[in-house]
């Protein structure tokens, strides 16, 4: 049989958490595109402790599919990033799609367009909506302003990454607390595709993730602590000048007030810096010692 389909092996990793009927519909649309363009592909669904019928309906749908679906059952609810890391580790494709959500406010053809963009020498392709929420915009503004990457991060609907990019980010760090930033820092070529629309919110845990990402992938934390240190230094100098003035004016009893003032300010500053140091340390501990970064209960392979 001669086909003009792509010979590269692709994987589609999809995050699921109580998506209900939307999950099957999403898989149906994705496989329609993949079937049309690819000879070989696999589907990987990460079941982040779904409590509704998401997995059951997916199972019965997959039983009739020619291509294999791997379902990773997470032991307990762990949120998007650890789950997608697990999905990435399970995927075997040369090109891996990361679908963080089963919402599809874009044309399915964009999925193949992302692949074509990759073939033009891009290792990471983000497909981004034109409209985003205010809080995301703020986060990305702070992030991009403080990161040294050549690429600007933005809200995206899904991503396509090459095996090369995955190997590269794993070579520098085994654990990826924030995949997107790790890719951007990988030094490989990134490209954005745009579509007219808006992406829904990705749920809880974003604030903590935003803080971790800023501390890990940008120098925002360092800048804050440096700022605090400079302010303290300036304050200390002013106090020194003040103390000298009082000393020269011949009212040394006044010095006691000054001393107290310096001490109070100094301690406040030290504590501020300590907060940041502690933040870094906790992240280091997490990265270094939490070997088992996610807990998988079982892996299930479904195919016709």
């Amino acid at each position: 049989m001669i086909t003009n389909k792509e010979k590269n092996f692709v994987s589609a990793v999809v995050y699921l958490h109580n998506d209900g009927g939307r999950a099957v519909e999403f898989f149906r649309r994705v496989t329609a595109v993949l079937d049309q363009h690819f000879d070989q592909y696999e589907l990987v669904a990460v079941d982040d402790a779904c409590t509704d019928n998401t997995v059951d309906s997916l199972r019965s749908w997959a039983a009739g599919q020619a291509k294999p679906l791997t379902v990773l059952h997470m032991s307990l609810y762990q949120g998007l990033e650890p789950c997608m890391n697990a999905g990435l580790d399970a995927a075997i494709g040369d090109y891996v799609y990361e679908f963080d959500s089963t919402a599809m406010p874009y044309q399915p053809e964009l999925i193949f367009e992302a692949y074509q963009t990759a073939l033009r020498g891009n290792d990471i392709i983000s497909v981004c909506p034109t409209h985003t929420s205010g809080s995301s915009r703020l986060f990305y503004r702070v992030f991009n302003a403080n990161s040294h990457s050549a690429y600007q991060l933005r809200t995206d609907a899904f991503r396509l990454v090459t095996r090369r990019a995955i190997n590269r980010v794993h070579a520098s760090s085994e654990n990826l607390p924030y995949r997107k930033a790790a890719y951007a820092a990988s030094g490989l070529k990134m490209a954005d595709l745009e579509f007219e629309g808006r992406m829904g919110d990705k749920g809880t845990g974003r604030l903590a993730l935003a803080a971790d990402s800023l501390a890990l992938y940008t120098d925002a934390g360092y800048k804050v602590s440096a700022g605090v240190a400079i302010v303290m230094m300036v304050l200390a100098l002013i106090e020194l000048a003040y103390t000298l003035v009082i000393f020269c004016a011949g009212h040394p009893i006044e010095g006691w007030t000054t001393m107290m003032f310096v001490l109070t300010l100094g301690f406040a500053g030290v504590f501020a810096v300590l907060t940041i140091v502690v933040k870094y340390l906790s992240l280091l501990v997490d990265l270094t010692f939490k070997k088992q970064k996610y807990l998988v209960e079982s892996i299930e392979k479904i195919q016709k």
């Binding site: 092996f9 070989q40 075997i92 494709g93 095996r163």
Partner: peptide, 10 residues
Amino acid sequence: WPYMSQLARK
């Protein structure tokens, strides 16, 4: 083969 080889090559 496409799957097994892909897994090994990964």
